[in-house]
């Protein structure tokens, strides 16, 4: 079996005991890192060492480690999910860094995503935005035959592209205003592009936008930072579509 590699790194990691404590950066030297490790495996190595030294390991969120669950969420060297485009933290590999690098790792920062501990934040605001209308109201058992609803492929493809959002929150973390427009618009678009979503179109966009404001997310000023950092490359077109949906819902009364 190939053993560990030979990269040496300096890590500056945000440590915060709980949501009410004050946090601060701590510096760690790590060595024996191989280019084949994922970024989170590098954290595993550091955590194992901290445990052996009797210290508390760094808490961070993760689950699938395949880039699909949306749980991992590190702000790395000033970029949500780090340097690779279209990539979550868990899919980022140490090949992206060089021996001797200093890497700064922080949690997502947004009023609407309070820090729970170290790099772990509370993203339940996203669930509440979905509760406000991110669904189609159909009870189990009421469905018609699936092929009785025809959907033309271009619309189906666009809906699918919007539905690829993994709810990670990188868009909020990347945005100077901590806006949740990309996330919300991805869901509004996904459902608005499908005939099944049509009946609730107006109430949906209204309620979801209202909830977004209630949660304390900021305004969108079209910086495009969200799209640039989104691991699923969700397009800004979705924000434009949501704005149109919103305007037409307001003027339709």
């Amino acid at each position: 079996m190939i053993m560990s590699g030979d990269m040496k790194l300096t890590l500056k990691v945000w440590r915060q005991k709980n949501s009410s404590a004050k946090g601060a950066f701590e510096t760690y030297q790590v060595d024996g890192i191989s280019k084949d490790m994922s970024f989170l495996e590098m954290f595993d190595v550091l955590n194992e060492r901290l445990i052996s030294e009797g210290k508390e390991p760094i808490a961070f969120d993760h689950d699938c480690r395949e880039g699909i669950c949306g749980m991992c969420s590190m702000y790395i060297n000033g970029r949500a999910h780090g340097p690779w485009k279209g990539t979550t933290t868990c899919q980022l590999h140490m090949r992206a860094f060089n021996d001797g690098d200093t890497i700064v790792v922080e949690p997502w920062r947004s009023v609407a995503f309070p820090v729970v501990k170290d790099l772990v934040v509370n993203r339940s605001a996203f669930d509440r935005i979905i509760q406000a209308g991110g669904y189609i109201s159909v009870n189990t058992g009421n469905a018609v035959d699936a092929n009785s609803i025809l959907i033309d492929k271009p619309d189906a493809d666009k809906a699918f592209a919007a539905a690829a959002c993994i709810g990670c929150g990188a868009c909020v973390a990347a945005c100077p205003n901590a806006s949740a427009m990309l996330f919300t618009s991805a869901k509004v678009s996904h459902l608005a592009l499908l005939p099944q979503g049509d009946p609730e179109r107006k109430t949906r966009v209204n309620n979801m936008v209202r909830q977004m404001d209630i949660e304390g997310f900021g305004m969108c000023s079209n910086t495009g930072a969200c799209e640039a950092e989104c691991p699923k490359e969700i397009s800004l077109e979705n924000i434009a579509r949501m704005n149109r949906e919103y305007v037409s819902s307001v003027f339709a009364g």
Binding site: I136, A143, A146, K153, A156, H190
Partner: peptide, 22 residues
């Protein structure tokens, strides 16, 4: 078979052909 009906009714974007069918 009911599962597919249910999921499509919920808006699950399953792959489609050009004719609009699944």
């Amino acid at each position: 078979t009911s599962i597919i009906d249910q999921c499509v009714a919920q808006g699950v974007p399953l792959a489609r052909e050009y004719g609009g069918l699944l």
